[in-house]
Every structure is written in C-alpha cells, then in structure tokens.
C-alpha cells in the first residue's frame, strides 16, 4: 500500500425534505420560535445602488410549480464587493448580500427585495457581469442546486461574461437571465427556474 493521504471525505448531501421551513423559516411552518429569523433582509437600509425586486417560480419536469422549495441568494453590493473579510472593499453597514426565501405554499412563487449587484472579477481577473449566486433545495432534490441569475438590462456585460460564454449551447444562456420590467414605477425582474425538460435552467458544479 502506498502512503495514505489522510484527507477526509465530504459529508454526503441528503434532501432538505418537505419540512425545511421548520429549521430555516419556522414562521412559514406555522410557529414563532426565534427572535430573529435569518435571511429576510439582503441589502439592509444603507445599501447604495438600485433597489430592485426579483420574482420567480421553480418548475418541475411536469411543468408544475414546486411549492416546498427554499432558495438562498449570495451577491455583491452595487460596487462588486461581498460582505466577507476576503470579499473586496468593506460594504455598507447592514449589507449582508445573503438571503433566503421560500416558494409560496399555494402559488409556488417567490420574491425578494435587494439591490442590483455590481461587476465582480473571476479567478483570472476577468470582469463578470452583475449576477447573484443561487442555491436551491427542496423535497426530491438530493443535492442543493447551484445556478446564477443575470440581468436582462446588462446585455453588453452579459455578452462578455466568462461564465455565460462557457455555456456551449447559446440558447441555454438565456435560462440564466432575469427579465426586467416596471411595476408601479419600480424595477421587477422575473426569474423562473426549470428543473427539467425543455428550457431546463443551467446548473453549475461549483
């Protein structure tokens, strides 16, 4: 036997199941236990940049909305810095850049308020178009799915984005672009995630 490397093995993932709300969003499960539930304010009151709303649904392979999903979002502030000691320059006080949201038990829709993130650099120093990293769990999803949300009004930056350009099938890049519209004078983006079938969302192994 050659020498052992002594690395540990990552703990295997298991589905979050239908009752994920108990642990991560207990009010949605139907009870109030914590003084503060986490993840409901992504940007905080002091964040600079454009205030936006993002809405969407998560659709299964039969075309039905998933009503027991939970998403987490991780994003830079409007200047491209993450709220992390190695995430760039300091961010505004109260800016977290992280949020979690559930799909509605009746409609399957989700929605968050945040600010539009700025440009960040990839590992080779190339600019990446503004985007939000998304992580999705639900009953029936064995390992949380990673994807990215880009913005339809950033066409030029999206066309130069190294990650979007790595997707060989050009028509699939569109699955990562949230579509901007206006409602009551405010910007709203629509981002539907399709788990399977025609127009399946691009997921990443990060």
């Amino acid at each position: 036997m050659p020498q052992s490397l002594h690395y540990l093995k990552e703990t295997a993932s298991q589905t979050a199941g239908p009752y994920v709300h108990i642990g991560l969003a207990p009010k949605a499960a139907g009870f109030d236990i914590y003084k503060r539930e986490l993840g409901w304010d992504i940007a905080g009151p002091n964040a600079k940049g454009e205030r936006i709303r993002i809405e969407g649904s998560v659709i299964d392979g039969m075309g039905a909305p998933i009503k027991d999903a939970l998403l987490e979002l991780w994003q830079a502030n409007s200047e491209g810095n993450y709220a992390h000691p190695q995430g760039g320059d300091p961010v505004e006080e109260g800016f977290r850049g992280w949020g979690r949201v559930i799909t509605d038990f009746t409609t399957g829709d989700w929605g968050v308020e945040t600010v539009k993130p700025g440009t960040t650099l990839d590992s080779r120093g190339r600019p990446q178009a503004p985007h939000i990293t998304l992580w999705l769990v639900a009953r029936g999803i064995n390992v949380g799915l990673n994807t990215r949300l880009y913005f339809s009004d950033e066409a030029e930056a999206n066309a130069a984005d190294p990650v979007l350009n790595m997707i060989e099938w050009e028509h699939r890049r569109a699955t990562l672009i949230a579509q901007r519209s206006q409602r009551d004078g405010k910007p709203v983006y629509r981002f539907d995630i399709r788990l399977q079938g025609e127009a399946e969302t691009v997921f990443f192994d990060i």
């Binding site: 589905t15 299964d60 392979g61 039969m62 039905a64 998933i66 639900a138 009953r139 029936g140 999803i141 064995n142 799915l145 990673n146 990650v163 790595m166 997707i167 788990l195 399977q196 079938g197 399946e200 969302t201 691009v202 997921f203 990443f204 192994d205 990060i206």
Partner: peptide, 13 residues
C-alpha cells in the same frame, strides 16, 4: 426526485 432532477450535466465552474 424523478420530476425534480435536472437531465443535463452541470457546467463546472
């Protein structure tokens, strides 16, 4: 998992 599993390979980043 049957209707909730992506069919295509994930893109490695």
């Amino acid at each position: 998992s049957v209707a909730r599993s992506p069919s295509y390979s994930k893109i490695s980043l």
